[in-house]
């Protein structure tokens, strides 16, 4: 089904919107595309953070473990969004777990390889990290709004 070359699949993803072609080509060399069934673990909380992901199709849930409650769902990451930035920041472990809740297709990039590419091409690294920052900012905004509990009945 992936007759389409990886590069053009990535070009359609909002994360790479308007990225220079040569940058995209260099990044695409690092990417593989993987399909997950519903309910598969993508990474576990506390495990080594190896990869960066782009969700191409489907839905991934971010989860954490709470005593007495088991795994608790925090947010979902859907087609068009990115997932996993712990490979960028010490101690390079995933802070939360990620699991699919639908059949899901992901573009997977090895974080270590990406960093090596960025070292050689800081221009590309800058472009890439800016996009990661935008995504993190959006995720933070989402989290803050979730915290506000805006739909709660004010008189309860």
């Amino acid at each position: 089904m992936n007759a389409q070359p990886i590069e053009s699949i990535l070009a359609d993803h909002p994360f790479f919107k308007e990225i220079p072609r040569e940058h995209l080509a260099r990044v695409a060399l690092q990417a593989t595309i993987s399909r997950f069934d519903k309910g598969e673990v993508i990474f576990r909380e506390g495990s080594d953070a190896r990869n960066f992901y782009l969700v191409l199709k489907g839905r991934v849930i971010i989860e954490t473990l709470l005593p007495h409650q088991g795994l608790v769902n925090i947010q979902t990451v859907e087609a068009g969004e990115m997932l996993g930035w712990s490979w960028l920041v010490p101690p390079f472990r995933y802070r939360f777990g990620a699991r699919t809740v639908q059949p899901t297709e992901l573009a997977i990039f090895n974080g270590k390889h990406l960093l090596e590419v960025f070292e050689k091409d800081p221009q590309l690294g800058y472009q890439f990290l800016r996009r990661v920052l935008v995504a993190i900012t959006e995720r933070l905004e989402q989290t803050r709004l979730q915290l506000l509990n805006i739909y709660d009945n004010p008189v309860k």
């Binding site: 839905r59 769902n73 087609a79 068009g80 989402q142 709004l145 979730q146």
Partner: peptide, 22 residues
């Protein structure tokens, strides 16, 4: 989308604005 899911909720978790970009 919902702010807090349930064990059986398989839909989106997060704030409604998350759909707008996509």
């Amino acid at each position: 989308t919902v702010d807090r899911g349930s064990k059986s909720w398989r839909g989106s978790l997060g704030v409604v604005t998350k759909f707008v970009p996509a």
